Every structure is written in C-alpha cells, then in structure tokens.
Amino acid sequence: MSQELDFLLDIDGGGVVEKDGASAYVENLREWLHTPVTTRYGNPAWGNNLSMYKHEPMCSDTARSIENSILLKLPKDCPQIRVAEILCTPVEKDMYRISIFTNYGLVDEVVSI
C-alpha cells in the first residue's frame, strides 16, 4: 500500500493530509506535474521538463508537444502510473490545463510552464 502526503501540504483537523492507495499515486502525479527537472532535492532528474515550452507559441502544436513530452518522461519517473490518454489545452500566458487519464484515475491540473 502506498502513502503520500498532499504535495501542497494541505492540512485538516488531523494535520497534513495523507493519501492512501490509488489517491497516493494520483497525488504523486500531481506533484510531478508541478516539479520541474533539477528542482527536487536528492533526485534532480525527477520531474517534468515542460519549461522548455515556456517561449513557444500557445497553440495546438505546442500542446501536442507537451503531451508527447509527458508521455516520454513520466514513465521514467513514475513507472507504476500507466497513462491511457493526455489532453493539453492552453489556458492563459504560460499556463496549460493538463488532463491525464491513468490506471489510478484522472489528474486534471492547470500547470505553469
């Protein structure tokens, strides 16, 4: 059984929110989406490489490139998560809504590139 703390360290009456089972894997993926490569202490290779799209035009071609980038990098960092589908759409300047359908459920996040 996997356990994961809420990556934004949300708290409730019992302290920092903990996730178990499938929701722990979803939380791990949420953290991965918000963690650029080289920023995780002790494991700088872990995280997304989406910052390379920061100065690209916000269009469907860039969104498809982001989807492919996630498909290539995520299995290396989180091998237990299998991706069924990814949808990426521009929201506003340097922000994309990324929806990832996994074997543990849907992760739908607005991510700053």
Rank of each mutant, 00 (worst) to 15 (best):
M1T: 14
S2V: 14
S2R: 13
Q3R: 12
Q3G: 14
E4D: 10
E4G: 02
D6E: 09
L8D: 14
L8S: 14
L9S: 13
L9D: 13
L9H: 15
D10H: 07
G13I: 08
G13P: 06
G13D: 12
G13C: 07
G14Y: 14
G14L: 13
V16Y: 10
V17D: 00
V17N: 00
E18I: 05
E18M: 07
D20P: 02
A24D: 00
Y25S: 04
Y25R: 02
V26K: 01
E27N: 01
E27F: 00
N28D: 05
R30P: 11
R30Y: 08
R30F: 08
W32M: 06
L33F: 13
L33K: 05
V37Y: 00
V37T: 03
T38C: 01
Y41I: 13
G42R: 05
G42P: 10
N43K: 11
N43A: 13
A45Y: 06
N48C: 15
N48F: 11
N49H: 08
N49C: 09
N49F: 04
L50I: 08
Y53D: 09
Y53N: 05
K54N: 12
H55Y: 15
H55E: 15
E56V: 11
P57M: 05
C59Y: 03
C59H: 03
S60E: 10
S60I: 09
D61L: 15
D61A: 14
D61Y: 15
D61R: 15
D61V: 14
T62I: 13
T62S: 14
A63M: 05
S65A: 15
S65E: 11
I66H: 12
N68Q: 11
S69T: 06
I70R: 07
I70H: 10
I70P: 11
L72I: 10
L72W: 05
K73S: 13
K73W: 11
L74W: 09
L74Q: 12
P75S: 15
K76P: 05
C78F: 01
C78R: 00
C78Y: 00
Q80T: 04
Q80C: 02
R82P: 03
R82I: 10
V83P: 01
V83S: 01
A84C: 04
I86L: 00
C88E: 07
T89M: 12
V91K: 04
K93T: 14
K93Q: 10
K93F: 10
D94S: 03
M95L: 06
M95S: 04
Y96M: 02
Y96L: 02
I98A: 01
I100Q: 07
I100M: 07
T102A: 09
T102E: 09
N103G: 00
Y104D: 03
G105C: 05
D108Q: 07
V110Q: 10
V110H: 13
V111Y: 14
V111E: 12
S112Q: 08
S112M: 08
I113Y: 04
